[in-house]
Write a protein that binds this DNA or RNA. Structure first.
Length: 667
RNA sequence: UGGCCUAUGGUGUAACUGGAAACACAUUGGUUUUUGGUACCAAAGAGUCUAGGUUCGAUCCCUAGUGGGCCAACCA
């Protein structure tokens, strides 16, 4: 049996290499270091999955460390929420620790650094200091307090600690190099005076350490072997190492391991935002019901929505780990939850948009309790009874007076199977004064062996339970709502992200408990919301079932119009895509040639070919430019403008790629 | 007028020390089906940003471009 070697990500490669170079496996140790200033979101689960996942594969301890160095923003509420979320995801931390646990050690080391001439107290305004700091392209200059004597520095720092100075009057800085190319090395701040109550240390401290100083040394104190964080901390690494190497001189005998920081690209999900600050804004402005609103990308939101821990963990696994910017399609997340729930969720029947069916040849008062399988994917799930009677509800969308043969559902004159029950045939309809159908009259047969094409779900009207169903749509209408320079993310809010439906469900769900998940047959997966009461059931729609019928409906004319293109030749649209992909990278003369080619190819392209490209990822400017050029040709040849086209053009005009803006304006 | 990171199908991630570009999602067909679900089978889709170089051979190494990201909070 040849064991298939699983592909490793770049972090695992680094660890394997370290192990081969002599690092003992029992020295491996990781950490997850959230700041308790907000709720964890789906983006954090990537970091959680990486560090805790590594802990699981190498059987190494993982610390949960709260990076609590800013008492102004941090609260116990967030600590509790974070712990709850990580536990819910199913991870176990070795130690629950706090950066604030190390305040004294950090202080002692800072004093050492001062004594060694590696840190000093600066007493300027923040404006003066930032002016001296320079810019990424210009070196900084030394400030006037840079060469204070060790004694003076020690004295000032001690008095800062003792609370003798006001906030903003003095700070402690590392003494490194104001001309350094890396701005983080230009005498970074280590301590500021902050007379705030801390959620754990109370009023013990008047000075609080900054991130770079605290984070790296916390790793060192905990003897973390690999400190993994997101890409934006890459420039901090040089400082991380500087601090670490200087402190090592003070503690090498007790703390031999020097941690290694490595960075990976954070997770981005299409149509959602990940910034804690922005999520907080949604909560504060009451655009959502709270951090756990089922539309929120927070872990608590996903939990309330009905996502399982397992589905989120497999999602993170599938997403992978690398160093390039990425936008994950939400469809992957949806796939993961469907896959999980398909095996575990019991099926029931519910009608969300009812229309009445009367079985004319069924006795008036008769009720039958028919057997229904709970989950055909799981034999152990067993069966239940569902009541059948003369008057039923089915979905409005499942009936048409007339329809073509592609419509497998109920239409007058033809038969359909009722799930778990009989085969019925629609005979006639009853309409109100406005011509709306109010009843469908059917006949039934008990011969259920017959083969019929469609199967519908239904509920018996007299037995149905009324329930509230909350159906969600994406919170934002834009693929990357917070990446626009002159449009605020709030402008993309989807006003219809919540739809409340009065639904009818089969009586077996009366016993359902908060959190229970079901498949409403043929509709999707739903769970019982926290707001649910015995007398008023509330369900959240987690995700719909895949629906290959719904998908082809919106553009019925598409199928007819599509010319049966011969497939021997490489289609023009493919060639255009190719040219577009490289468009922004090639030299200008070549761009002109490409453009001419695209224009020529566009003559053979249909709108249906082009339309899918409107959804091209925002970052792929080249493809969007090529699409724009082709679109211009189509419009010239008589293609009518529609909302998709308008949206594509408007979005392009707002882009930061000048070539794209120019092409958009040319239309 | 800087530095660092990065570039592989529509999306994401692989390709062990250079050796016929793989997997998953999405898409499109088909089979099965008392869910237009699931499962299964199949197809299409990239020749690895560009230009050079090293090499018998480059997604992988080197150089230079180009595109994208990050870097100037007493935030983390």
């Amino acid at each position: 049996m040849s064991e298939e070697t699983k592909a490793l990500n770049f972090i695992e490669h680094i660890i394997e290499e370290d192990l081969q170079n002599g690092l003992s496996k029992d020295k491996l140790r990781f950490r997850f270091p959230p700041e308790p200033n907000g709720y964890l979101h789906i983006g954090h689960t990537k970091a959680i999955g990486i560090s805790f996942g590594l802990g699981e594969t190498y059987n190494a301890p993982v610390n949960l460390r709260f990076d609590d160095t800013n008492p102004a923003k941090e609260e116990q509420e967030y600590v509790d929420a974070i712990k709850r979320d990580i536990e819910w995801l199913g991870y176990e931390w070795a130690n629950e620790v706090y950066s604030s646990d190390y305040f004294q050690t950090l202080y002692d080391w800072a004093v050492q650094l001062i004594k060694d001439g590696n840190a000093y107290v600066d007493s300027q305004s923040s404006e003066a200091m930032s002016a001296q700091k320079g810019t990424p392209t210009q070196p900084g200059v030394d400030g006037p307090y840079r060469n204070r004597s060790v004694e003076e520095n020690l004295d000032l720092f001690q008095k800062m600690k003792a609370g003798e100075y006001d906030e903003g009057s003095h700070i402690l800085r590392a003494k490194i190099d104001m001309q350094h190319v890396n701005m983080h090395m230009r005498d970074p701040l280590m301590y500021r005076v902050l007379k705030k109550h801390h959620h754990r240390t109370g009023n013990d401290w008047c000075i609080y350490p900054m991130y770079d100083w605290t984070h790296g040394e916390s790793d060192y104190i905990e003897q973390i072997s690999h400190s993994l964080c997101s890409l934006e901390f890459k420039p901090h690494r040089e400082l991380y190492d500087w601090f670490k190497e200087h402190v090592y001189d003070y503690a090498a005998d007790k703390l031999p391991m020097q941690p290694k920081q490595r960075e990976f690209a954070r997770l981005n999900l299409s149509y959602t935002i990940m910034s804690k600050r922005k999520l907080l804004k949604l909560v504060e402005q009451k655009l959502v019901s709270g951090w756990d609103d089922p539309r929120m990308p927070t872990i608590s939101g996903l939990r309330r929505r009905g996502y399982t821990p397992n589905s989120i963990r497999t999602f993170i696994e599938k997403v992978g780990v690398a160093k390039r910017e990425n936008v994950i399609d939400v469809s992957l997340l949806e796939f993961c939850i469907r896959e999980d729930l398909n095996y575990s969720a019991p099926r029931i029947m519910a009608v969300l948009d009812p229309i009445k069916v009367v079985i004319t040849n069924y006795p008036n008062d008769k009720v039958e309790w028919l057997e229904a399988e709970n989950n055909q994917e799981d034999d152990s799930a067993g069966c239940r009874k569902v009541p059948f009677s003369k008057e039923l509800y089915i979905e409005k969308a499942d009936f048409k007076e007339e329809a073509n043969s592609k419509f497998f559902r109920l239409k007058v004159g033809s038969e359909v199977r009722l799930k778990n029950a009989y085969i019925i045939k629609a005979e006639s309809v009853v309409k109100d004064a406005n011509g709306n159908i109010t009843e469908i009259h059917c006949t039934y047969t008990t011969d259920t062996e017959r083969k019929v094409k469609g199967t519908l779900h239904w509920v018996s009207i007299q037995h149905a339970i009324k329930a509230e169903v909350r159906e969600y749509d994406r919170l934002f209408m834009d693929e990357a709502p917070d990446s626009h320079q002159d449009t605020d993310f709030m402008e993309f809010i989807n006003p219809n992200s919540l739809k409340i439906i009065d639904a009818f469900v089969e009586p077996s769900v009366l016993e359902a408990q908060v959190g229970d998940r079901f498949q409403f047959q043929r509709l999707g997966y739903f769970n019982v919301d926290n707001d649910s009461k015995a007398e008023h059931l509330v369900f959240n729609k987690i995700v719909g079932l895949r629906d290959s019928w719904e998908k082809q409906k919106p553009n019925p004319q598409q199928q007819n119009n599509k010319p049966q293109q011969a497939q021997h030749k490489r289609p023009a649209i493919e060639a255009i895509k190719q040219l577009g992909k490289k468009y922004t990278n090639v030299p200008e003369e070549k761009q002109l040639i490409s453009k001419a080619e695209i224009i020529k190819l566009s003559e053979e392209v249909t709108y249906e070919d082009l339309q899918p490209l409107f959804n091209t990822a925002a970052k792929k400017a080249g493809t969007r430019i090529a699409t724009m050029i082709a679109l211009r040709v189509l419009l010239k040849n008589g293609q009518e403008r529609n909302s998709d086209i308008e949206e594509f053009i408007t979005k392009a005009k707002d882009d930061k790629n000048e070539l794209l803006v120019a092409e958009a304006n040319a239309i």
